[in-house]
C-alpha cells in the first residue's frame, strides 16, 4: 500500500500538551514539512519561546534552545554568529514577540540578522490563562479586559508586520492565517520563502501566522477558526508586506 500522507520527520512522537483546536500543532507541522522538503532538518537549530509553544524543543527532531521570555531573537543572533551556515529560526507567540520582546524583535530585524522568525499570533496570552496581549483586538474580551479591549484604557493592538516592514534590515515580512486549509497552504508557501531567504543569506525574515486559541477565546475550535478568519484578519490583513 502506498503511503500518501505522513507526519513530517521534524516532529517526534512525544505527547503534545496543546488544547484541542489550538493552531500551534498546525504551525509546527507546516514548518516541519517545509524544513524536511528543503532538506534542512539536519541543519536547523530552533529557538523556542516562553509561552504555550515553550516546549517545542521536546516535540521537534532538531537541536533546540529555550530562550527567556521575549529574548528569542537575541538568542538566535548568538547562535547564528557561531553557525552562519546553519538554519536558525525562532518560534514566538504574541506575548513573547511583541509584549515583552519588542526590543529584541525590532533590533534583530534592524540589524538584518539572517534568521527566520515564525510568529504565532493568537491575540491573547494562552499559557497564563487568557490575559490581554499586545495583539488583542479592540473589543476582544480577555481576563484583564473583561468588557473588551478599550482603546481609551488599554491602547491598540500592534501590527507586527506593518511595524517591521519599513526597517531596511527586514527582507521578507508576511502574514498568513491558519484558520482553514487554503490559508494553511498559503502559510506554508510563505514559510518556505522565508527559509529560502535565510538559505540565500538575504537577511531577516518573519512570517506571522494568525492562530486560534479556542480555550481562551472560550469558543469551539470551529468557531475560533471562523473568528480568526472573519475578525482577526480585519485588524491583521493577510499578505506579503515586504519581499526584497
Amino acid at each position: 500500500m502506498a503511503v500518501i500522507y505522513q507526519k513530517s520527520a521534524y516532529l517526534n512522537d512525544v505527547k503534545r500538551h496543546y488544547c484541542p483546536g489550538c493552531s500551534h500543532g498546525i504551525a509546527h507541522k507546516i514548518v516541519g514539512e517545509v524544513l524536511e522538503e528543503m532538506g534542512l532538518l539536519e541543519k536547523t537549530i530552533m529557538v523556542a519561546p516562553v509561552g504555550c509553544s515553550g516546549l517545542l524543543y521536546d516535540y521537534s527532531n532538531t537541536d533546540g534552545i529555550h530562550a527567556l521570555h521575549g529574548r528569542a531573537p537575541a538568542v538566535a543572533t548568538g547562535v547564528k554568529a557561531v553557525h552562519p551556515d546553519k538554519i536558525v529560526y525562532a518560534y514566538q507567540g504574541d506575548g513573547d514577540l511583541i509584549s515583552i520582546g519588542t526590543g529584541e524583535t525590532v533590533s534583530a530585524a534592524a540589524r538584518g540578522e539572517n534568521i527566520t522568525v515564525i510568529f504565532a499570533n493568537n491575540s491573547i496570552f494562552g499559557m497564563t490563562g487568557g490575559q490581554m496581549a499586545g495583539t488583542t483586538l479592540v473589543g476582544e474580551k480577555t481576563s484583564t479586559c473583561r468588557d473588551g479591549r478599550n482603546p481609551q484604557v488599554d491602547g491598540y493592538p500592534v501590527g507586527v508586520c506593518e511595524m517591521l516592514a519599513p526597517l531596511q534590515g527586514a527582507k521578507y515580512i508576511a502574514r498568513a492565517s491558519l484558520h482553514d486549509v487554503p490559508h494553511i497552504l498559503k502559510a506554508k508557501q510563505m514559510i518556505r520563502t522565508a527559509f529560502e531567504y535565510q538559505l540565500n543569506n538575504r537577511g531577516y525574515s518573519l512570517v506571522e501566522l494568525l492562530c486560534a486559541c479556542p480555550t481562551n477565546l472560550k469558543m469551539s475550535p470551529t468557531d475560533a477558526c471562523r473568528w480568526v478568519g472573519e475578525e482577526m484578519t480585519k485588524t491583521f490583513p493577510l499578505g506579503v508586506f515586504k519581499e526584497e
Binding site: I45, V47, I65, A67, L68, R71, A74, V75, A76, T77, G78, V79, K80, A81, V82, H83, E104
Partner: peptide, 10 residues
C-alpha cells in the same frame, strides 16, 4: 541572551 545563544551553539 546573545551570549547564551553563542555559548549553547558551542
Amino acid at each position: 541572551n546573545m551570549l547564551f545563544g553563542a555559548g549553547a551553539a558551542g
